[in-house]
């Protein structure tokens, strides 16, 4: 009889609201470490691309290059790669810092910021991914038709 009463009580609260449990938070340090790693890698890669870009511009200014159109295309591609790598690197480092703050202080505002940073990351990554797939479709079609 007592058991039935308990069951009735439990089903009464159908939507108790979401909680961030200790189990969920146990994954945060791992996520933070990987985002930190990816962010650092992104920024280092952006640094290398930037270095190549500087050397490319320096060589182009010192020597007279016959095919300027090709040079401008290559430079633009390098600038694009630099911006993407630096942007994603910075974003991932920012996410990493948000996770660290949320995990350390367990404050509602920090958790909200962590959630917001992840949303921003998936939104930007999603847009880039759509563009990449479109580029891949075109390049695969060119490759097959060639």
């Amino acid at each position: 009889m007592e058991q039935i009463e308990n069951t009735t009580e439990n089903t009464g609260a159908e939507k108790p609201g979401l909680y961030i449990t200790r189990d969920a938070r146990s994954f945060w340090p791992g996520t933070r470490a990987w985002t930190l790693f990816l962010g650092v890698v992104g920024l280092v890669a952006a640094g290398f691309v930037g270095l190549v870009l500087v050397l490319l511009i320096r060589v182009a200014l010192e020597n007279s290059i016959a095919n300027r159109g090709e040079l401008i295309t290559v430079t633009m591609l390098y600038i694009l790669a630099f911006l993407i790598l630096a942007g994603f690197g910075g974003l991932l480092l920012w996410i990493s810092s948000r996770i660290q703050l949320a995990n350390r202080y367990l404050h509602t505002q920090n958790i909200a910021q962590y959630t917001e940073s992840i949303r921003l990351y998936f939104m930007i990554a999603g847009i880039f991914s759509i563009l990449t797939v479109l580029f891949q479709v075109v390049s695969t079609m060119v490759l097959i038709g060639d």
């Binding site: 961030i20 509602t108 958790i111 909200a112 949303r119």
Partner: peptide
């Protein structure tokens, strides 16, 4: 103490 309620604004963001 260990389970924190999800912030109200986070539902839409998630």
């Amino acid at each position: 103490e260990t389970s924190i309620p999800l912030p109200a604004g986070a539902y839409g963001v998630l």
